[in-house]
């Protein structure tokens, strides 16, 4: 009896998730029709893509900057907590990192806009002066610091706690047996980590990074506040670029219900949905590719 109730509940929960997913997908697709079809002109996919691709690229750039900055730091901090710090210290560092996750994103946005941006202005000036032959640092540097790079840094700080805590959990679970196997062969602490800890934690690190990427892709408030949006530009240090969530957040209140503009915003939301889906599936694929060697068997 109890078994039946439980299996029923589990099934229900599973179905509920699928149903939500289908509902969201159907809602997004149905409401985005207006963005790609006009009665008098027929399909206008080309126009929509013209509108969407700068936003897609902007979103990816901001998230990529965030990942590149956050991942090494997060892995390093997690490793310090799990394998290097004395037990008391490691606990308090863990708490501080978790606190970072508790800060509302609007606060991060305000901090990025009023503090981090202006602070980074001299750096942008320097980068432009010395490295302007690289397209990334070519355009005229922003005087407010409200650039895609600043947004990326803010996102990095925001996703740091997620990646750190996932990595820490996995690092701690590394079997003692394998750590000792490495040490007994004459490995230094770092060699032990590369031989036993990292291979064991590989899948966990990837899923932590993907969780972080998911948050970075979807982050609205912080980016909307930090970035002064504009046209797509390769330069990271001048004003311009925008991301999908920021575009939706800034544009939606002004779009009349049922209008083509609203359909456009929903359609771009659908695009973000698909990107996130691809990211997650890629992560799963990477994780499962080396299943045989994962130690799960």
């Amino acid at each position: 009896m109890g078994d039946k109730v439980f299996s029923g509940l589990a099934l229900l929960a599973g179905v509920a998730i699928l149903a939500t997913l289908v509902f969201v997908a159907v809602f997004l697709s149905f409401n985005s029709v207006g963005a790609v079809y006009r009665e008098e002109e027929g399909l206008i996919i080309r126009q929509f893509l013209q509108y969407a691709y700068p936003l897609v690229i902007g979103t990816l750039i901001a998230s990529l900057i965030a990942l590149l900055l956050a991942t090494p730091v997060a892995v390093g901090v997690a490793l310090y907590i799990s394998h290097f710090a004395p037990p008391r210290l490691s606990k308090s560092i863990g708490y501080v990192i978790d606190l970072l996750a508790a800060i509302p994103s609007v606060v991060y946005g305000a901090w990025g806009m009023s503090f981090l941006g202006p602070t980074l202005v001299p750096l942008y000036g320097w980068l432009h002066q010395h490295l302007s032959f690289i397209p990334l640092f070519a355009g005229s540097p922003s005087q407010t610091g409200r650039t895609i790079f600043t947004a990326g840094v803010v996102l990095a700080v925001m996703i740091l706690p997620i990646i750190t805590s996932v990595c820490r959990e996995i690092f701690i679970q590394t079997p003692k047996l394998h750590e000792e196997a490495a040490l007994a062969l004459g490995a230094t602490r770092w060699e032990m980590i590369t031989m036993a800890v990292f291979p064991f934690a590989r899948a966990g690190i990837i899923s932590g990074v993907m969780l972080g990427l998911g948050r970075a892709l979807g982050e609205t408030m912080a980016v909307a506040l930090v970035l002064s949006p504009g046209l797509l530009t390769a330069s990271l240090i001048s004003a311009g670029n925008s991301t999908i969530p920021a575009e939706i957040a800034l544009g939606f209140p002004e779009a009349p219900p049922g209008s083509e503009r609203q359909a456009q915003l929903i359609a771009i939301g659908l695009v973000l949905f698909i990107i996130t889906l691809i990211v997650n599936m890629t992560a799963r694929w990477i994780v499962s590719r080396h299943k045989e060697f994962s130690g799960a068997n």
Partner: peptide, 17 residues
């Protein structure tokens, strides 16, 4: 430890290798 090797109670080959 490089001079004095050790074999453990439970077999512990590196699973990813």
């Amino acid at each position: 430890r490089a001079m004095v090797g050790m074999v453990f109670q439970r077999p512990n080959p590196f699973p990813t290798m």
